[in-house]
């Protein structure tokens, strides 16, 4: 994953050490990135915070799960949908997301990403924006690797078409 601009490999999720603290350190960036990709930075961060708070409360149960990050993503997704419906869906998902210093992206990219389906958007941003592997994306989204591949391919194809970018 891309974390502070550097590619790092995820450590395996452990439930020992300092329990929830260790889990939190490993999982929070992943869940937040996935939710921000799907629902924008503001809603995604808020939903991730709520999901992690839930994770803290349900730690006993969560720690026994095979894919706790995927479970928390689903919790966060429910929260995000609720927040979105409260806010109204007319608000742009990626408002306030502007190129950082020394970087550039097409001004139309955020809107083009927003026009993708939720799953396509997440897959494209996590896979090609954050640089996650297909397996890493699949784990957090709770879907199979072929499904991620399918959504990534379709999302990219549509982005290229909309932005007029050649292969």
């Amino acid at each position: 994953m891309l974390y502070n601009g550097v590619h790092v490999d995820w450590p395996a999720v452990t439930t020992s050490e300092s329990g929830f603290d260790a889990f939190f350190r490993e999982v929070e960036p992943r869940v937040r990135a996935a939710l921000c990709s799907a629902y924008g930075a503001d809603v995604g961060a808020e939903a991730a915070a709520e999901a992690l708070a839930y994770g803290w409360e349900a730690w006993e149960r969560l720690s026994g799960m095979r894919n706790p990050a995927g479970y928390l993503y689903k919790v966060g997704r429910d929260r995000a949908r609720r927040i979105r419906s409260r806010q109204g869906r007319s608000l742009p998902l990626f408002r306030g997301v502007v190129p950082l210093e020394d970087t550039w992206f097409e001004p139309g990219l955020p809107a083009a990403l927003e026009r993708l389906s939720e799953r396509q958007r997440s897959a494209v941003i996590l896979r090609h924006g954050y640089g996650w592997t297909l397996a890493e994306v699949a784990e957090v989204l709770g879907v199979s690797v072929p499904t991620v591949q399918k959504h990534t391919d379709r999302g990219l194809e549509r982005l290229r078409r909309e932005l007029g970018v050649d292969r």
Partner: peptide, 8 residues
């Protein structure tokens, strides 16, 4: 997309 992810 990488630049977008960092901005996000």
């Amino acid at each position: 997309l990488a630049a977008f992810a960092r901005a996000l």
